[in-house]
């Protein structure tokens, strides 16, 4: 097999998915940790947002890296999904699962939900086109008042509910994906197998609790303007 053929083989595509996925899991955790500063109040949160905006070129390098990872992940997933679908033209009358779970079986669907959510999320909080009412508000220090936009947006039960559902799908996706990454990259063997199998469910739980806590807190009025 030529070297180029390796990267388009079923294994090469899986490794591409795992590597890009690992980068995105890192981003999701970093993004969540940054956003949880909303619980520290307006000043801390706006200062954090201001810091990110002031990164300039670095911010665009990170964004282009993320876009590249998303594109690679979707390209590999599409090729593999079509191939896997074609590999069993006639299904079974009955095939029972012994090991696999709901997270693994719904990866494609939760992935599509997450993709749609990313589009909405960027339109909402990065571009300000989905709910523009408070997007350009400024705080008393003249910084963008991201805190007000955030809290008022999530006081709306439809917006908060959308984010909660999307983040539960994201958490379910990561629960299988993060464990799968280490198998695909060949690390989940021997003494590392058991601990690495726990990483997926742990990341899923952390993301589910962390990311849904923010819209729920705004919705319930725990965080207010």
């Amino acid at each position: 097999m030529a070297r180029s053929a390796v990267w388009t083989s079923t294994i090469g595509l899986k490794v591409a998915m795992a590597a890009s996925g690992l980068g995105m899991v890192g981003f999701v955790l970093f993004h969540m940790a940054g956003n949880l500063q909303v619980f520290a109040g307006r000043d801390v949160f706006n200062a954090y947002a201001h810091f990110l905006q002031s990164l300039g070129g670095l911010l665009w390098i990170a964004r282009l890296g993320l876009i590249g990872m998303v594109a690679l992940h979707i390209w590999a997933a599409t090729k593999l999904a079509l191939r896997n679908y074609a590999a069993r033209p006639q299904g079974y009358a009955s095939l029972k699962s012994r090991r696999t779970g709901v997270y693994a079986k719904t990866m494609l669907y939760t992935g599509i939900v997450v993709l749609a959510y990313i589009g909405y999320h960027i339109a909402h909080l990065t571009l300000g086109v989905a709910h523009p009412e408070y997007f350009n508000a400024l705080d008393e220090l003249g910084r963008k008042d991201v805190y007000t936009n955030f809290v008022i947006s999530f006081s709306n039960p439809i917006i908060a509910g959308t984010y909660v559902i999307a983040n539960v799908a994201l958490a379910a996706h990561l629960a299988h994906a993060t464990t799968s990454v280490f198998r695909s990259l060949g690390l989940s063997v021997g003494r590392f197998k058991q601990p690495l199998q726990m990483v997926g469910p742990a990341v899923g739980l952390i993301v589910a609790v962390g990311n849904t806590s923010m819209p729920i807190a705004c919705w319930l009025g725990v965080l207010s303007v």
Binding site: S9, T10, R83, N84, A87
Partner: peptide, 21 residues
């Protein structure tokens, strides 16, 4: 691996059903 892919088998998505079966 090339022969496996050529034959039309699918790819692994880590369900572990193979090990169980």
């Amino acid at each position: 691996v090339a022969a496996h892919d050529e034959a039309g088998f699918g790819g692994c998505t880590n369900h572990e059903e193979c090990e169980a079966a």
